[in-house]
Amino acid sequence: MASLLSQLKDDIRFSEGLSACMNCGICTAVCPAAAYFDYDPRRICQLVQTGEEQELEKLLKGEEIWMCGQCLSCKARCPRGNVPGYLIQSLRKLSQQSGLFIHSSEGRKQIRLKRRIGHSILETGYCVHPLMVEPETHPEQGPVWIWALEQGADLYRRCGSNYYGEGEGGLRKMAPGVLNELEAIFEETGGLRFWEAIERGAEELKLNQES
């Protein structure tokens, strides 16, 4: 099986993301993940820059790569033109592709995410739509949101949205043909295969938990 490093190198975001980090810390200074988690994008760049297989494997199995919020504030500032954010994207992709993601609690959450947002894309043509944002699991949305959901179509149509209706406008119901095209794209470009890899991970996880 090709080394982790060579697999990473196939991802264009890896070569774009890291040419030569000089350990200056400008990215971590403005990183919101570093302001909240015990996380340091500079350290990730340094570890990846060693190119050692165990370091990469530890990263791919670890929690750290899942803490980045992908706001890419680091890209604007890096004096060497590196992009820790891209690096994280390539690491996360490989972690899920290779199944190593199930070794970290944060990585395992990708399964939940896939089943929620991934399926929403193919079913509704939207990443997020009102019915997904259930008040029980989104208390932070506040009472107005609960009320808005209760009103549903009346409120949305009052504001000019189509609210799951046929035809034009916001939140319109996607024609089946459109969804098929989306699915075809996911099929053709490896999107579905990627999701299968995630599900394989979930399967393996279930086996481990049972044994």
Binding site: Q89, R92, Q110, L113, I117, G118, V128, I185, G190
Partner: peptide
């Protein structure tokens, strides 16, 4: 985009 930045969608897709 949101799924992409949740690392659920490959770049090619």
């Amino acid at each position: 985009g949101i799924a992409y930045h949740c690392d659920l969608v490959p770049l090619e897709t």
